[in-house]
Simulated assay, not measured.
Amino acid sequence: MRVSAYVIHTRPFQDSKILVDLLSLEQGLVRGVWRLPKKEARVIPGPFLCLEVELTGRGELKTLKSMESLHRQRSLEGMSLYAALYAHEILTKLLPLNLPLSDIYYLYQWLIENLHSGVAIAPLLRRFEVGLFSELGSAINLSSTGRGEPLDPKQLYQFHEKFGLRPYFGEIPKLTPLLFVEGKVALDYHNGHWSDKQVLSLAKELHRAWLDSLLNGKPITARRLLPKQPFQGERLLGVPIFRAI
């Protein structure tokens, strides 16, 4: 089988062989064994390059027979590189093997193309995460309450991982929410107002907690490469609160 794919992770396997994780259009996340060329010409397949790959094998672990580039090689540097490595890590940890997910392939392709263009990185990553959550069936609903009621832009809500948004009237909740958010900010997030600093700040805090839940607490090591910038805003009952500015 031939597939269009990007290399998103490599690691040593056996003498003269490596394990390669590919994000493919036709088969989703594929793990295969690649035999390196002769020692004098050993080149490990690089990332961020669309390849045509020939796969063989019926099990989860495939054999990669050939890899040919479909486009000219382009490199990423600095924060753009770190952002791509972060995307690679969460893809390898979240995606099941050998399940076709074409929309995630195109989402990743969109991210890489925009990282090459030099646009602002934070909005790109947040939009990438939103798309990834949606395609995995774990979308975050900030468009209505957990009961399906429309949001009041001026009402303050508490957001719980299991129950979604609930109106907050000043009581001490039995379960501490992940965060508090005003209706307008929640709706701006839902509508993709990524140029709004409050929306970006909300998304960063919310997505971090959401990813930690999806990964059952497994660490994301690439986070160390990105700016930490801990939340410095207002808190309520010890958790972040996001109000319209």
Rank of each mutant, 00 (worst) to 15 (best):
I121D: 01
Y108T: 04
Y106Q: 12
F133K: 01
L94N: 06
I121M: 03
E135D: 11
R127P: 00
F133E: 00
I172H: 06
E135L: 14
A203H: 02
Y157F: 12
L178Y: 03
Q158S: 14
E161K: 10
V119Q: 13
F128A: 00
I121N: 03
S144Y: 08
L95N: 08
E129V: 00
L179Y: 04
L132R: 06
P153S: 08
E149Y: 09
Y168H: 12
K154G: 01
P100W: 12
N191M: 10
L94W: 07
L156V: 11
F180Q: 03
P167H: 09
L124Q: 14
A120V: 08
N98P: 01
L178M: 09
S201F: 03
K154C: 03
I140W: 01
R166T: 04
A203E: 01
S117T: 11
E149I: 10
G118A: 11
Q158T: 03
N141S: 12
L151Y: 10
P100Q: 11
K174Q: 13
R147M: 07
L115D: 10
Y106S: 05
P167G: 11
E129L: 04
H193K: 12
I121R: 02
A186V: 03
R126F: 02
V130Y: 01
A120I: 09
G146A: 14
H190V: 02
T176L: 15
A139L: 12
Q109G: 06
W110K: 11
V199E: 02
A186E: 02
S117P: 06
N141R: 15
Q155E: 13
G164N: 08
A120Y: 08
F169I: 02
L95R: 08
